[in-house]
Amino acid sequence: MNVNSGTRLAGAAAALFVAVLLAACSSPDQESTAGDRNDPALVAPPKAAPTPSVSNVPDLTLPIQAYQPTLAQRTVVENATVSLVNACMHRFGFDDALPPGRPSQPSLMSRRYGVTDPAIAERYGYHVAPGDGIETGAKPAGNGGALSRSAILVLTGDPNGQPRPGAPAPAGTYAGAAIPAGGCSGEAAAKLGGGRLFGGATTLADRIMTTGFAQAETDDRVTAVVGTWSACMKQQGYAFKTPFDAAASAKIDTPAPSTVEIKTAVADVTCKRKTNLVGVFYGVERAYQNAAIQRNIEQLNRLKAEIEQVVKAAAGALGVPVPR
């Protein structure tokens, strides 16, 4: 087995996994940026239906989520990628290169509008709480050894460990066997075709998710309720213009929240509930997303079909049912 020295596996695995899923793949809906006026994610201010006061924020959903991979879908794609990469490495006489997949997806809504749960505020302040799904430095289980230069070549298609899925391997062969284009990572990417859908690249649905929030944040209806929230906070002795300013004031890199942080977070949540800030923000954001979806429905339907195709390929590679 040729795994003695070289790049540490943890770093290589993390970089590799992203590269595997960032296979060269593009489509017209990726060409514009969120700041471009021609960006299909940007829409005119829509009408927003009144939203009642929201109590259980993590259970909320946004319309564009219907066009993004679910946690179950991400899990099967990651597991299939790890399985395919490692099987390829075995063909060349190497041990597993990637540790078992451990995808983590926070509750999208739990902190979208800041801290919103009184119980969370009283215990954690603005610190990470269970259910937030934020990594806190724990490393995935797996072989913690190092990869040799030869292993890196076979894994990435590049002796320097610069993954180039789809690109020919510079050395061409290893131990008499042809190295796949882009190494074992490129082979896995080619079999699944995940590309921009699962590897962190921005899809139209992702842009609508971020752009809709940004547009809602500056919408007159949201800025008005944020102003009311700010006035509520001022009455309790806090000078913050927005809830995000309040959260930014906390030192969340400390082991535990301070008394000041907890009191601030409790006041923050109290004012959010008094003003129905979350209900207004959520309602306006939904309206922007629905308008963007209506504008781009054909592209989004194609995107959804692409996701389902990749998930089906991943499930087939693992021999498991196709998740939804």
Results as ranks from 00 to 15, higher is better:
292 A>W: 14
22 L>M: 01
240 F>R: 11
21 L>Y: 04
256 A>L: 05
292 A>V: 09
250 A>P: 06
2 N>S: 00
146 A>I: 07
178 A>W: 12
188 A>M: 05
104 S>G: 13
218 T>Q: 14
54 V>H: 12
279 G>A: 13
14 A>C: 10
53 S>R: 15
142 G>I: 02
190 A>D: 15
64 I>G: 11
28 P>I: 00
145 G>K: 15
159 P>L: 05
56 N>R: 14
213 F>V: 05
76 V>W: 09
99 P>H: 11
147 L>Y: 10
80 A>C: 10
312 K>M: 00
19 A>T: 07
1 M>N: 05
46 P>V: 02
96 D>Y: 03
206 D>R: 14
263 K>F: 02
297 I>R: 14
266 V>R: 13
22 L>T: 01
11 G>S: 07
253 D>S: 03
170 P>T: 11
117 D>L: 10
266 V>N: 07
272 K>I: 00
261 E>P: 00
126 Y>D: 01
195 G>I: 04
96 D>A: 12
273 R>M: 13
63 P>N: 05
127 H>T: 04
123 R>A: 10
202 T>P: 09
70 T>E: 00
222 V>A: 05
61 T>D: 11
296 N>Q: 11
237 G>V: 07
160 N>T: 14
298 E>S: 06
66 A>F: 08
303 L>M: 10
72 A>E: 10
251 K>F: 03
45 P>N: 03
318 L>V: 09
172 G>Y: 15
39 D>H: 09
103 P>L: 01
72 A>Y: 06
45 P>Q: 10
290 N>H: 15
202 T>H: 14
47 K>T: 06
40 P>L: 01
150 S>R: 14
282 Y>R: 01
321 P>Q: 12
21 L>A: 08
319 G>K: 14
260 V>Q: 01
100 P>N: 13
150 S>E: 15
196 R>H: 15
73 Q>C: 10
173 T>D: 08
203 T>K: 06
56 N>I: 09
301 N>H: 04
108 L>C: 07
241 K>Q: 13
27 S>D: 00
130 P>N: 14
220 D>G: 12
24 A>I: 09
176 G>D: 11
111 R>Y: 09
189 A>Q: 15
211 T>S: 12
280 V>Y: 03
41 A>C: 03
101 G>N: 08
239 A>I: 00
187 E>Y: 08
274 K>L: 01
109 M>G: 05
197 L>E: 03
269 V>I: 06
154 V>D: 08
26 S>F: 12
232 C>Q: 12
21 L>H: 11
133 G>R: 11
232 C>D: 02
131 G>Q: 09
17 F>S: 05
204 L>W: 14
204 L>G: 06
301 N>Q: 04
9 L>M: 14
299 Q>P: 12
93 G>Y: 11
41 A>D: 00
22 L>W: 02
35 G>E: 12
97 A>H: 01
135 E>M: 12
88 C>T: 03
83 S>Y: 00
163 P>W: 06
307 I>A: 08
131 G>V: 13
241 K>C: 02
221 R>S: 02
4 N>H: 14
321 P>D: 13
308 E>C: 04
258 S>F: 00
272 K>L: 01
150 S>Y: 13
